[in-house]
Design a protein around this nucleic acid. Sequence first.
RNA 1: GCCACCUUAGCUCAGUUGGUUAGAGCAUCAGUUUUGUAAACUGAGGGUCGUCGGUUCGAAUCCGACAGGUGGCUCCA
Length: 615
Amino acid sequence: MSDQKTDHLHAVRHSTAHILASAIQRLWPEVKLGVGPVVENGFYYDIDLGGEQLSADDFPRIEAEMHNIIKAAEPFERLEMPVLEAVGWARKYGQPYKEELLNDLQRSGTTFAKDLDADELGLAAEGDSKVESVSFYRNGDFTDLCRGPHVEATNKVGAFKLMRVAGAYWRGKEGNPQMQRVYGVAFETPKELRQYLDMLEEAKKRDHRKLGQELDLFVFSDLVGSGLPLFTPRGTVLREELEAFSNELRKDRGFEKVSIPHMTKKDLYEKSGHWAKFGSELFLVKSQETSDELVLKPMNCPHHTQIYASRPRSYRDLPIRYLDTTMVYRDEKTGELGGLSRVRSITQDDSHAFVRPDQIEQQIDDLLASANELYGTLGMKLRVRLSWRDESDAYLGSTELWASAQKQLKNAVIANKLEYFEQEGEAAFYGPKIDFMASDAIGREHQVATVQLDFVMPERFGLEYTTEDGSAQHPVMVHCALLGSTERFLSVYIEHTAGRFPVWNAPEQIRLISVNQEEETIKFVQSVVQKAKGLGLRTTVDNSNESVGKKIRSAEMWKIPYTVVLGEKEIGGSELVPRIRKDLAVNDEAKSYALDEFLKTVANEAKSRVSKTSL
RNA sequence: GCCACCUUAGCUCAGUUGGUUAGAGCAUCAGUUUUGUAAACUGAGGGUCGUCGGUUCGAAUCCGACAGGUGGCUCCA
């Protein structure tokens, strides 16, 4: 809000939201209005048309009405009135949602709408003192409770476009009635709007679901079920390379791999506390033999605690660090599923360190360093969120422990010079988290890496170690996943790379194209494949009866890092001219290399996980 | 789970107000060709129009349920 440009854009968007509401009220005089805040790139307005449902088909007439209002150049006038009077106004004009907000405002001096601050609600609630009066803005025959500011008149807004209509619960609570939320984008100039819409078109091209299909990385099957992705050979190479890197980073720092079954008696989760909190989201498994109630594991920490608990531990043994990349299963609601970003079979590159209190700091440092190394190598910039508890009773453990845990996480983040933001209500029920957030192609944020500090689980499972003075003490658990979930990570990573994977994790690293199908050529190509495979390079051959041009085109579309055409010239000489994928190449010139030198260079690049070629 | 929208060949899409045997490009297969850095030529196969039910003389087209998907909301250990 500091600079003028931001302020003005904000006013433009907010004013456009009012124009939207005005237009809807003219077309549907019975409309009951919710809130209409500014959001990234635009605005929305929540409406309730009683029985009628708006659809995108209605947008043309709404937009036409909006343009009429804009043409009319109605000035935005600010009015002020005491809260009590405002309640009367809301009642008089049949606006129950506004009335509810005003009543709350009157009662407590603030509104409780979750995650919507007073500014977004358009309320005049400032500071924490009791609010005496609220402001309204009027344009033409439309008046709305609103803090402002607005542009001077309706013709001073910029370019806008209604985007979609979606359901949204009143005040974000599932039990409340569902309103319709009309989303629009708005910018100061038509050019900026066009640029934004073009950007969205570009983003569609790198949508991980589209690329997953085009590059043959993963599929879904109606017979298998929704939210259950199947990874093809190519997709499996990609995920295993990434998982191997993630594991390596922690093995280097003292973690050891463990393995656990994918199901367990539900007793395990009753003990951990997960059953009480997430029981309805577990898949149940029935034994035909015993009376055991089994569940598919929705997470791994309880299993890992049982490995720790299997023998007495000394303070000298700590830290004990387990690493496990394994699938968990969660019965996510159908409407929450989407591509790879939200699935029901979730691979976690999970780890749990059991440490003494004096080892917490070092452990968190190690994990933050691992995360930095991973995302640095991948060229991804992440936002760091400190996920704290809120005042609700959704958390286990004493408030003192929580305060101490949150403080230690914050110190670690500061010590590692990470930029961060803090958010209440985002913690796990057993402890606070450092979450790393990545953005997808259209700017939606997803949590990837996470480091969590947990004093609760060791206590619930009665985990102990013997201290120097012979007494028993609970270890502290540090939970960590670097990719987070392989699936969700891939959804972001595929979009981040647009499917142009670096050599080290590219499913296909080199493609050899034969100029013709003569025996001599085929034989030569085979000998090159043998050499490349001998160096561990993922190499394929295109011997098909197609033109060289077509085979090159095909290799380009598969986004393969290196393509080599082999024919008479190569058989005769010992040099070849690799075709290097554009984003990898340092310059555009095609150069020739000795066969062995070329292969060795590529093999080294793959091993060292570099993002650019040195060829 | 809730709201809106979508579902035609492996993929991307046509299909006129309900009216005969549902089309195209790419991909696949066969033949011709033996190719030099982003698409050679010819031909063939491939669809109970997501599934089930209804309305109708007649349904890809209209209605309903279910399944799957998209965008949001809610949730996310």
